[in-house]
Structures are given as C-alpha cells and as structure tokens.
C-alpha cells in the first residue's frame, strides 16, 4: 500500500510521519505519536470522542485521514494546558463537575474551545447546539453547559484585565 510523508504541527510541535493512505488521523495521533487523550467512541462520526482542532476548527479525527492533515495545525487535549496552567475550559469542567468517566471529555472540551474562540459569550442554546455532535453518556450535559459558561466568564475576565 502506498505511503506518504506527512508533516503536521501538533500542539505547536512539528511532527513527521510516513503513513499509509488509509491511516486515520486518530490512529496517527494515538499510536504513532502516543497522544492517547483523543479517544475513539464510534465508527460513524456521531459521538465526537475523537474531536481535535484542525487549524482551530473541530474535526472528528476518526473519519479524517492523517494525510488530509498534512501541512495543518492540530490541537489535541494534551495541548490545552499552557505553562502548567489549565485552560479555562479545563478548569470549568473540573469546577462544575462537567465530567464523570472522562472518555468524552477531551472531545467535548475541544469543541467547547472552538465555540468560545468564535463566541466569547454564548447563550445556553448556543452552547447546547455547539456540543450537539459530542455525545456524553454520564453527565446529562447540564454540568457541561455550566462548565462552558464558567470558561466563557473566565476568558472574558482575563481579557478585561489584559
């Protein structure tokens, strides 16, 4: 099977790989780079556990080929914490009990980050719509909504002080 040389910037670091055409991005991240925070929950791009950011946009890495990410920037859950400080979204999920088993959490947080990057003050309806492609079986979403609201408030405060 044909292989391709790819270069992807993952969490700010340049990564290279020689990959089969059919290799899924999620497997490249999890197995080639050992970034196992990105999870696999279904085969039909419904659950969103595999969500990562591609140039800032959420994509489901289980239905995205590694070769398609060639030359792009990928952010995974491992890239959210900066200089030993949790991202406000991570903090919000912890403060508001927005996670239980933790399996959907990385994808859920990355989708939330993408929402907050385009809308710093989302309504509950906007939050619910944004995360509607990420399934959570544990929390009933109530505390995830609160976690995102917490993060929104925190980001706004940080910017007001900046």
């Amino acid at each position: 099977m044909a292989t391709h040389r790819i270069q992807i910037t993952v969490n700010g670091e340049a990564k290279e790989g020689q990959v089969e055409s059919r290799l899924l991005l999620v497997h490249f991240l999890r197995e080639n780079l050992r970034l196992t925070g990105t999870h696999i929950g279904c085969d039909t791009s419904h659950c969103g556990a595999c969500t990562v950011l591609l140039d800032g946009q959420p994509v489901k890495s289980c239905t995205f080929l590694a070769v398609q990410a060639d030359g792009h920037q990928i952010t995974t859950v491992e890239g959210l914490e900066q200089n030993g400080k949790l991202h406000p979204v991570q903090e919000g999920f912890w403060e508001k009990h927005g996670l239980q088993c933790g399996f959907c959490t990385p994808g859920m947080m990355l989708t939330s980050c993408a929402l907050l990057n385009r809308n710093r003050n989302p309504s509950e309806a906007e939050i619910r719509e944004a995360i509607s492609g990420n399934l959570c079986r544990c929390t009933g979403y109530v505390n995830i909504v609160k976690a995102v609201q917490y993060a929104a408030e925190k980001l706004q405060k940080e910017e007001a002080h900046a």
Binding site: T38, V77, E81, G102
Partner: peptide, 12 residues
C-alpha cells in the same frame, strides 16, 4: 480523579 482526565492522561 479529574486532573488526569482533563489533561488527556487517563489510562483506558
């Protein structure tokens, strides 16, 4: 248990 899950460091 949350700090590891929030960082993608759970071990499934």
């Amino acid at each position: 248990e949350d700090p590891r899950f929030l960082r993608g460091k759970g071990n499934y």
